[in-house]
């Protein structure tokens, strides 16, 4: 996926989230991936685990450092992108296609407050 998915919202901590109707898809922004450099390890949560907004749910490691990834909105993990476990470099190759988890968001109305549209997010990090 070469293009930014339409309708994503971004957090200050560089995650994106997309409302896909049944579930929400969460990933890392292009800016975050570019800042991390070569991604060599991705640790994802168990399906069924529940997290609050802003809670750490995953870890992404570049050659140099480990970075915690935070929930842009609270909810229950319904699917994880297993492909990234064995091929973490996919995040560098196709950032928008390399989602991390799909989530059943429990409190979207409140949790979505403060998330930015992509254009505004891009401006905030430039």
């Amino acid at each position: 996926m070469a293009y930014v998915p339409e309708g994503i919202l971004c957090s200050k901590s560089h995650e994106w989230i997309l409302d896909e109707g049944e579930v929400f898809t969460i990933g890392l922004t292009d800016y975050a991936v570019e800042q991390l450099g070569d991604i060599v390890f991705v640790e994802l949560p168990e399906v069924g685990a529940e997290f609050q907004k802003d809670e750490t749910f995953a870890t992404v490691e570049s050659v140099k450092a480990a970075s915690e990834i935070y929930m842009p909105a609270g909810g229950k993990i319904v699917e994880v992108n297993e492909e990234l476990i064995n091929s973490p470099e996919k995040l560098n190759e196709d950032v928008w296609g390399s989602w991390l988890v799909k989530v059943d968001c429990s409190n979207w109305g409140e949790d979505s407050i403060g998330l930015m549209e992509y254009e505004d997010y891009k401006e905030s990090v430039s």
Partner: peptide, 19 residues
């Protein structure tokens, strides 16, 4: 990509660390 190191602003990577 330039980062602080030992009081200096030095390049940490160009094309990517692995490459």
């Amino acid at each position: 990509k330039i980062v602080p190191f030992a009081g200096w602003d030095m390049p940490v990577q160009y094309s990517g660390i692995i490459d």
